[in-house]
């Protein structure tokens, strides 16, 4: 679907992307994880042709041919829902959608139908004629996504789509991602929220300082980089105090603890994607 080949981008002395290579598979939801300044936004900008790489290339596979996203006609295959809300506050939801439809050469009845479909998909049909400026944060996010979808792209790039939205809107956005996946659309999902990536993504790439640190399914990454499970025990002698111990094989350890007696509760905590992320990128703050 889309391939990054040894991608490199520098801004002065800062290397934002440093030899990044990965390939998206058609129809998958691909998570792009990384701390602030990891190079995610620069990578996305190069994926959609907004930035030209200094080295390497971005290749879109279409009709058995390789294309560069720099070419306008290929970009019609792409839909971008940027982190900043790329909508016009003074236009209504339907006006925003019709304007972007026009840019893709969709006009008249077709533009109206597609705009209505995009509004229905994002749950905004009732507010079609309200100006975007009166929308809540979650509604604006959904409209932002609707604008990226109305031309029916084959690859949708979503940059922090749930930033600052309430749980209802977040769930609605998850449903949209699942609907897109069911329709065979490839989705690149850029997020800081690990549980979202665990819930939605078929595969995940962890990047930091412009480099690819790990790539695979969530399960593969946890197994490879999540570290050991933790056995958490609470004894009758010290209620409320939890004793944690990393264990490679928790079942025999738990059996031994039960045999000793005086056990109030016991929990086995499997590693999560967050453990993977912190193990790979470290715990130092990024500003």
């Amino acid at each position: 679907m889309l391939e990054l080949r040894n991608l490199r981008k520098r801004f002065g002395s800062l290397t934002a992307v440093d030899g990044l290579s990965l390939a998206l598979r058609p129809g998958e939801v691909f998570g792009l994880l990384g701390p602030n300044g990891a190079g995610k936004s620069t990578t996305i900008s190069m994926m959609v042709g907004l930035l030209e790489p200094d080295e390497g290339s971005v290749v879109l596979h279409h009709d058995n041919r390789e294309h560069s996203p720099q070419h306008a006609h290929v970009r019609a295959m792409l839909g971008l829902a940027p982190q900043s809300l790329a909508i016009y506050d003074e236009l209504s939801a339907i006006e925003n959608l019709r304007f972007f439809a026009n840019l893709y050469g969709i006009r008249g009845r077709d533009a109206i139908t597609r705009a209505q479909n995009a509004l229905a998909l994002t749950g905004l049909s009732d507010r079609a004629h309200d100006r975007a400026k009166v929308f809540s944060g979650g509604m604006k996010r959904r409209l932002n996504l609707a604008c990226a979808l109305l031309h029916r792209p084959r690859l949708v790039l979503m940059d922090e789509p749930t930033a600052g939205v309430d749980p209802q809107s977040r769930n609605a956005l998850f449903d949209i991602v699942r609907t897109l996946q069911a329709d065979g659309v490839t989705v690149v999902y850029c997020t800081h929220y690990m549980e979202e990536a665990e819930k939605l993504c078929d595969r995940v790439a962890v990047v930091d300082r412009g480099r690819l640190l790990a790539i695979g399914t969530v399960h593969e990454l946890i197994n490879a980089h999540g570290g050991p499970s933790e056995l958490v025990l609470e004894h009758d002698s010290a209620p409320g105090t939890l004793a944690r111990s990393p264990v490679t094989d928790p079942i025999p350890e738990l059996a031994a603890a039960i045999a000793k007696g005086g056990l109030r509760s016991a929990t086995i905590q499997r590693p999560t994607l967050e453990n993977v992320f912190l193990n790979l990128t470290g715990r130092s703050l990024r500003d």
Binding site: R75, G79, L103
Partner: peptide, 14 residues
């Protein structure tokens, strides 16, 4: 600033 320019440029507008 608003990011709409990025969206315009991703659309087949140059």
């Amino acid at each position: 600033k608003a990011g709409t320019l990025a969206r315009l440029l991703v659309a087949p507008a140059n």
